[in-house]
Measured scan of single mutants.
Amino acid sequence: DHDVVPEDKFQETLHLKEKEGCPQAFHALLSWLLTQDSTAILDFWRVLFKDYNLERYGRLQPILDSFPKDVDLSQPRKGRKPPAVPKALVPPPRLPTKRKASEEARAAAPAALTPRGTASPGSQLKAKPPKKPESSAEQQRLPLGNGIQTMSASVQRAVAMSSGDVPGARGAVEGILIQQVFESGGSKKCIQVGGEFYTPSKFEDSGSGKNKARSSSGPKPLVRAKGAQGAAPGGGEARLGQQGSVPAPLALPSDPQLHQKNEDECAVCRDGGELICCDGCPRAFHLACLSPPLREIPSGTWRCSSCLQATVQEVQPRAEEPRPQEPPVETPLPPGLRSAGEEVRGPPGEPLAGMDTTLVYKHLPAPPSAAPLPGLDSSALHPLLCVGPEGQQNLAPGARCGVCGDGTDVLRCTHCAAAFHWRCHFPAGTSRPGTGLRCRSCSGDVTPAPVEGVLAPSPARLAPGPAKDDTASHEPALHRDDLESLLSEHTFDGILQWAIQSMARPAAPFPS
């Protein structure tokens, strides 16, 4: 592969990997390779389809078979030569091979799209000592099968071997295949498990690692696999990028399955594409389908809103127990993405979901129960707010008499603000006073009005108090039968009158 990737590009890729991570280095090298001529790309395919690569990765054979028959990708048995050289000459001794072996032994695996480039050397060096003999053996194999790289107009793939297949390693990572398949204008990513390549439709969760975000852009890794992070704060999961590491605690105790298979379609829109997988259930989501939507993949363990709600429900009964003089119970939860139609709101002032922060849900004790107040519409209280300059209440639009249902020339009671006709409430011909108009209920007259088809109010509507207090003497005590009587009149003013009279009014101040 030294004929494909020059030394300066190799060093530039290593520097970019240390600065921005393996995914960015892979993407940059792939983009550079696509700008080369067809001879360089053909050399790339020839390096990929060597015999030892085909033996190690069985899924490469179907890719090789898909090439046109007129494309010669065979390799000479006596060494490598550029395709432009007409004579089959043995190339001179390859010093770059020693360079590659020494550099890969030092860096474990470079971040390139060629056999030198995919593992994360920093994480491997940190986690190597417990498994040094086995990992050293794996390093000797890295130059042979560490990076199976493929690129063409139909298929483009980048393979990364790992030393996680050490025997006896619980939940060992089998390997990473960062794979971009450009077929019919689409893009897919796969993962390699035990020599087999699994596409998103049959993606397997190998051991402790999972394909957290099938994305090839942005600074985030394709698999949430930063070796420096180790395990999740809650004892979460091992990262795919942690090559040759000792077994780590796999999943939280509440995880239903340690080796679950995540779905390959969004649980909201039932469509495929780039998904984020939940650590607590097999569901996966688009970032845009979450509520609120996320802009980037959160670091650490992530769970959907259903799993978060289940966790909150487990903690909430203990938080609601009476604990005198104790601060509110704080339950730190990872930043969760909410699927459509589901929402768990945190306290005000918290950062938005999706940031690399930890939301704190506070379970406050329930407030003391209070008697429910009568629910009145805002339009129902409008007549009470229509007060004239002299303190006389004006008529609201649409006000109707509670007896006849007519809204023409209605009066407004100064005591309960109900609309009424003087002739309907006082049919006996009582003279109307000039000021202080009161309806039949507030004036103490319980004589029913002779209106055909309208039920008369119940005599129990009024329960006047002592006459010594004029204001308190007109406080009506309405009961269920009074409400039914008012409802039978089918008037809004009657219902409003009952609601206003049912509310307690402050006692009249004593004259000074």
Rank of each mutant, 00 (worst) to 15 (best):
A248C: 10
Q257T: 05
A366E: 08
A251C: 09
C401G: 02
D409G: 11
L250T: 10
A449G: 14
V329L: 10
R480L: 08
A449V: 13
A449Q: 07
P397N: 12
G434L: 15
A353I: 04
G402K: 13
C442H: 02
P322V: 10
L381H: 08
V246Y: 13
V387H: 05
Q501M: 05
R440Y: 15
R345V: 08
A508T: 08
G244L: 09
G336V: 08
Q309C: 11
T357S: 07
A248F: 15
D255T: 08
P348F: 12
T430Y: 04
P327W: 14
C277I: 06
G272M: 06
T430W: 11
P332M: 15
L359R: 11
G273A: 09
L275P: 09
T357F: 13
S441M: 02
L352K: 05
C401D: 04
I500W: 02
G398D: 08
S473D: 11
L411M: 00
A507T: 08
G436P: 08
P332W: 15
G444W: 07
L250K: 13
F510E: 05
H286G: 13
H286L: 04
C281W: 06
T311K: 12
E265W: 12
C404A: 02
Q243W: 08
H382G: 04
V315I: 11
G300E: 08
A508P: 07
A507Q: 06
C289H: 15
I297S: 07
C277D: 10
P317Y: 07
L275C: 14
P374L: 11
E296V: 11
E452Y: 09
G244H: 09
A284N: 08
P334W: 15
V315C: 07
V360P: 03
T430V: 15
G465N: 08
C281F: 09
A284M: 07
S441A: 09
H479T: 06
Q243C: 13
G388W: 14
H382C: 05
S379A: 11
S443W: 11
E350V: 12
R461A: 03
S306V: 10
R438C: 03
G280A: 07
H474M: 15
N394G: 10
Q243F: 11
P253T: 11
P324K: 06
P347W: 14
C278F: 08
G494H: 04
C424R: 01
D493E: 09
P324N: 14
Q242F: 11
L384H: 05
Q242G: 08
C413P: 04
T331L: 13
S299E: 04
G429I: 07
G341I: 12
V344N: 13
E274I: 06
V451E: 05
I500M: 12
A504K: 03
R423E: 13
E265D: 10
H363R: 10
P457D: 03
G354Y: 15
P433D: 05
F285I: 11
S488M: 07
V446A: 06
R480Y: 13
R295S: 12
F285A: 09
D255L: 13
A419V: 09
A463K: 04
C307N: 15
E342S: 08
G407W: 10
R323F: 12
G402S: 06
A399I: 05
D493C: 00
C404E: 04
G402P: 12
C289G: 13
G375T: 08
R323M: 12
D255H: 08
P322T: 11
F492V: 05
R318A: 14
A399R: 10
